[in-house]
Design a protein around this nucleic acid. Structure first.
Length: 454
RNA sequence: GGCCCUAUCGUCUAGUGGUUAGGACGCAAGGUUUUCAUCCUUGAAGCCGGAGUUCGAUUCUCCGUAGGGUCACCA
């Protein structure tokens, strides 16, 4: 093993706190985290806040919170705004080595005023680097010219600070988005000027919108926080992001973070960009939610329901707890529960529904009156059930009668009488959730409605 | 436009110089003790195009085409 290969791996995520935590930043962080951790290395977070105008502390906080929520723990944290002395040191060093120079010119930001920017002396060579994902990439740097690396001796710019920091922090692997490929040659030029060793580069394919352009706000939710608020679990997000642009070369799709750590390798990273598919993310979320205990799911769901129902069920409300399995098999996220509640989807479990005659008909060419004797009979069965009747008990009590009279003839009007809806869980489940007393009342009400039309 | 990158079902992907090109999401049909959902089964759906190398290219090479990224005193 060579000296270089045995060197401790150091990776970093270098977000600029100029906006919310983007889902793509989260994925880049994940890959950096996995690569470092799977090799016993270090994972650094470095806030690149050299743009004083656009950088905001609250964005930095959100980024840190988001990554912590995902469980991507870092070994070190740096803030570029606190490192200007270091940048100045390197700037002075390369200026005196005649590899960069101060140039007095008219400010582009403030026309009319003059500033002393620092420009790198471009040796005008062709830079070739080996990308771990794409192989060899060559650039002719002539067209870059003597580009600006600092607004002033005390105010270094992005390309310069990145190179100095990666060098100072011993970063061995720069794993970042595809959009940085064209930045790489100029950063290598700076490395050579300050005498830094070149790190390994791995440029990740971008996360794309459905139209194959770079995923951005106009495509909908791109912030990690939005998914978090919608009730996506960190496990689902991590698992989905992991498989977006990376493959283990097996059919396995569900991974714990420990498994990811064991099998992750750069060689499995795709070259082409990957479209973000919310449907697949939802599927992952359902999968992970399946492992929740009833109690955990109750907590998860009740948070989404707060304030959405006309009659607010308490966490301890028995009826609400009995309803949960039904909700669970119908939604992917707590956000969906929230929307369904707001749309009144679950109101009939807590408030008496309005039952229409038309809907009580099993077949359109029949009359609602045909349902009357069935419902009256069913009401008698229900009257004999215990209040906390189970789904099985309800079914056993009614099944023979339903078979005898025709399942649709009995079960359809019963289900409508209980729910007031075209679509709902089956009547036995409804009786169980509502309780036999409430169920009896609703069936009697439906009978009254039919009679009142005569 | 210059430079750079990419190309297997709609989407995420596996894979090979000779395969019935595999899986997952989604979709469709059928079934699971009426509807919805769940679950099960089945199905439709793909190698961007053209040359070249080769006995044989989805796979290798070149050229197109398409898409994307990037061209700041932002990061």
């Amino acid at each position: 093993m060579s000296i270089l290969a045995s060197k401790k791996v150091v990776t970093r995520i270098a977000p600029s706190p100029t906006g919310h935590l983007h889902i793509g930043t989260a994925r880049t962080a994940l890959f950096n985290f996995l690569y470092a951790r799977s090799r016993g290395g270090m994972f650094i977070i470095r806030t690149e806040d050299t743009d004083k105008e656009r950088s905001k502390p609250e964005y930095e906080q959100e980024i840190l919170d988001g990554l912590a929520w995902l469980g991507l723990e870092h070994d070190a944290f740096y803030r570029q705004s606190e490192r200007s002395a270091i940048y100045r040191h390197y700037l002075e060093k390369i200026i005196s080595a005649d590899k960069a120079y101060v140039s007095r010119e008219e400010s582009k930001n403030n026309p009319g005023t003059f500033v002393e920017v620092v420009r790198l002396k471009n040796p005008n060579t062709t830079i070739t680097f080996d990308d771990e994902i794409r192989g060899e990439i060559a650039f002719d740097t002539t067209e870059l010219g003597d580009f600006v690396i600092a607004r002033s001796i005390d105010d270094a710019l992005y390309h310069f600070t990145v190179v100095v920091d990666d060098h100072e922090m011993g970063v061995t692997h720069v794993i970042r988005g595809d959009d940085h490929i064209s930045n790489t040659p100029r950063q290598i030029l700076i490395q050579e000027a300050i005498g830094a060793t070149r790190p390994h580069y791995a440029h990740l394919p971008l996360i794309l919108a459905p139209d194959r352009s770079k995923l951005s706000k106009r495509h909908g939710a791109v912030m990690l926080d939005e998914y978090r608020k919608d009730g996506f679990l960190k496990e689902s997000i991590l698992n989905y992001l992991m498989l977006l642009g990376w493959s283990p070369a097996t059919d396995q799709e569900i991974f714990t973070i420990e498994e990811c750590l064991r099998i992750f390798d750069i060689s499995g990273i795709q070259k082409g960009g990957a479209i973000f598919d919310i449907e697949k993310l939802k599927w992952f979320n359902r999968e992970y939610l399946k492992h929740y205990s009833d109690d955990d799911y109750a907590r998860y769901a009740s948070e989404a329901i707060v304030g959405t129902l006309t009659t607010m069920p308490q966490y301890s409300d028995e009826r609400f707890l009995r309803l949960l399995p039904t909700i669970r098999e119908r939604v992917s996220t707590s956000g969906e529960i929230h929307h369904a509640c707001r749309a009144g989807e679950y109101d009939y479990f807590f408030d008496t529904p309005t039952v229409s005659q038309e809907m009580l008909k099993w077949k359109h060419d029949t009359s609602a009156h045909d349902a009357l004797p069935r419902l009256q009979h069913v009401a008698e069965f229900i009257a004999q059930m215990p209040e906390n009747v189970s789904v099985e008990e309800a079914k056993n009590a009614l099944w023979n009668y339903a078979e005898e009279k025709g399942k649709g003839e009995v079960l359809w009007p019963l289900r409508v009488a209980l729910s007031g809806r075209e679509r709902s869980p089956d009547p036995f489940t409804l009786i169980h959730i509502l309780g036999s007393g409430e169920s009896y009342k609703r069936v009697r009400t439906a009978c009254d409605i039919i009679r009142s039309s005569e």
